[in-house]
Design a protein around this nucleic acid. Structure first.
Length: 281
DNA sequence: ATTGAGACCTGTCGGC
DNA sequence: TGCCGACAGGTCTCAA
């Protein structure tokens, strides 16, 4: 479920229970997530204070007093449950106690008494513990593209990253080295806002020398708009209830003013893309 | 160097 | 009801 807006939402949920708080203990119930847990995971975390909880793309990073960093990724199905002092348990509890427990892989016991549980049925998530140098050299993190909501992400940056790429534009947007944090939903959404076809070559938004064309400006602001809206909506309405422009709306009318098109689904690189073949060019 | 296909793992949903 | 395939919001690896 998690793309940048959802990960940012999770970060904001965790921040008050983690930042400036001490980790009293950690239970690892199942260490075989996408990446096997590092050695001494529990020992290296226990007793540490979380100094800051930040996000980069879809990654969460807890800076520890030991100056190591706890790196976390939610994969496809990861979530955190916060319980204990100062919190009201999450609705998950009532639903499926059994499945919830079955996929609880890591439990952080904070010295405040709060408990933070990482649950991930598909186990595509990851947790890792990295020194400052290892973090800077991390093969994925060090190559992440700009944060889409930062000033560093502009039409020039996007055009440069897309220059010469023959991949369909939608696929380029999913490449975290182009821009960090877009996923399958918001890539489709942004392309619809920008009125650009997901099928056109990525290189077409740049000139041969990598200068941004008008389409690059449109796409950049569409990405910012779509992500900002989603972050704001989550902040107001605590999860779900999302209404997308095209995602999962196959066969339904295009919502663009005066567009007679019908939303279509097509598979690109093994993933569903939703778009309006009439207005998106 | 790019790019597509398959793999990873579990759950859910619709059709027969 | 039960079985089966298709599909799910992410990423990695491997072969062409």
């Amino acid at each position: 479920m998690p793309e940048l807006p959802e990960v940012e939402f999770v970060r904001r949920q965790l921040d008050p229970v983690m930042t400036h708080e001490r980790i009293a203990d950690v239970e690892v119930r199942r260490p075989d997530l996408r990446v096997r847990f590092p050695r001494q995971f529990r020992a290296r975390l226990t007793g540490q204070t979380v100094e800051a909880l930040t996000r980069r793309g879809k990654y969460l990073m807890a800076d520890l007093s030991s100056s190591e960093t706890l790196l976390m990724h939610l994969g496809m199905s990861g979530s955190f449950r916060i319980e204990g002092p100062g919190t009201r348990g999450s609705g998950l509890r009532t639903r499926r106690q059994h499945d919830v427990d079955r996929h609880d892989h890591v439990v952080f016991h904070m010295s405040s008494g709060a408990t933070i549980t990482f649950n991930d049925p598909r186990r595509f998530g990851l947790m890792d513990l990295l020194t400052t140098t290892a973090l800077a050299r991390h093969p994925v993190l060090s190559r992440l593209g700009p944060e889409p909501l930062s000033p560093q992400f502009d039409a020039s940056a996007l055009a440069r990253a897309c220059k010469g790429r023959k991949t369909p534009l939608k696929i380029a947007l999913l490449d975290q080295r182009v821009v960090a944090g877009l996923g399958n939903i918001y890539a489709s959404e942004a392309l619809h806002v920008a009125v650009l076809s997901p099928r056109r070559r990525a290189s077409t938004i740049a000139t041969p020398t990598g200068q941004p064309r008008e389409t690059a400006f449109r796409l950049t602001s569409a990405i910012k708009q779509v992500l900002t809206e989603a972050v704001d909506r989550l902040a107001r309405t605590s999860y779900r209830s999302a209404r997308f422009r095209v995602y999962d709306r196959e066969g339904q009318p295009c919502l663009r003013e005066n567009c007679p098109g019908t939303v279509r689904r097509r598979v690109q690189a093994g993933r569903s893309t939703f778009y309006c073949p009439v207005c998106q060019r």
